[in-house]
Amino acid sequence: MTDKLMIKMANPRRPRRKLPRNDRYGWSFISLAVVILALFMLYPIVSSFIMSLYAPRQGFQPKFVYFSNYLRLFKDQVFLQALENTLIFFIIQVPIMLLLALCLAALLNNKAIKLRGLFRVGIFLPAVTSLVTYSTLFKMMFSLDGLINKFLLKIHLISSPIPWLSDPFWAKVTVMIAMTWRWTGYNMIFYLSGMQNIPDELYESATIDGANSFQQLSKITVPLLKPIILFTAITSTIGTLQLFDEPTNFASGGVTAATIGPGNSLLTIAVYIYNLCFKYMPNYWYAATVSYAIVIIVAILSFVQFKLAGERQ
């Protein structure tokens, strides 16, 4: 009997359960991705939440203040204005854009329409432009002596130029028009791919039963597209709540301007977070709190959308 075996017999231990061979390979393949995810996603998420519970002190280490930063949000007039602006963008722009995308997708799914490929490419084209480029372009087009005002004056729709970018109301309208232009084609592609997966037999039997096109759209297409509509609604909600590029580029003076848009009308929550970190006296701790406010709002809105759509999974 060898020494090794004698030692083993003297110290009986439960054998270590080995992972099945396939599991070991699986874990080794995804280990790098897991480490990177943990380092660059999980750690910042946890770290920023911990940061949101601290407040800076002059000359000292930040102090743990429990949820005071969160209570401060309710009294912060600038945050409330940013929240109001963001919600206005969300409530008005998102439904218009999704409805428009759905109508365009329904039309482009109609086999009787000629040149569908051309229309599809043309309408999707805005989605490939960079956010800064299209914001700058729209800022030029919507300026007081820009193309849009010239056109509207020429067809005598208005008697004096509309102050698209210098009036709080029109500034919001301009950003909404620009966002709708940029994102409608993108959402349309999702709807179109969903519609192409709906079997033709359903429409055929509906036609035989005497259903008209509108009834087919509302009773077949929309119910079957519900998961995709939910997906686009949630991604659009998140996108709108993180709105940053358009307001900063539309505001004269960009991020360095005193106000974002006339009378801070384009100040969104994401812009406010930027301002808290880099424009005002840096307060990363409060900025982390505002970031978590967005997380909470997105969670609530997504939950409401799930409930409205009646999705269980």
């Binding site: 039309l107 109609n110 009787a112 329409i113 043309g122 309408i123 084209l125 729209f138 087009m141 409608t184």
Partner: peptide, 30 residues
């Protein structure tokens, strides 16, 4: 005949909507 006219009008409206969307989408590139 009336039904056919209605269908033609609907198709015309569909094309008009698509062309308008196409022009608005492509115009800024010009």
């Amino acid at each position: 005949m009336k039904m056919k006219m209605k269908l033609i009008f609907i198709r015309l409206a569909q094309y008009l909507f698509l062309v308008a969307a196409f022009v608005i989408a492509v115009f800024p590139f010009y």
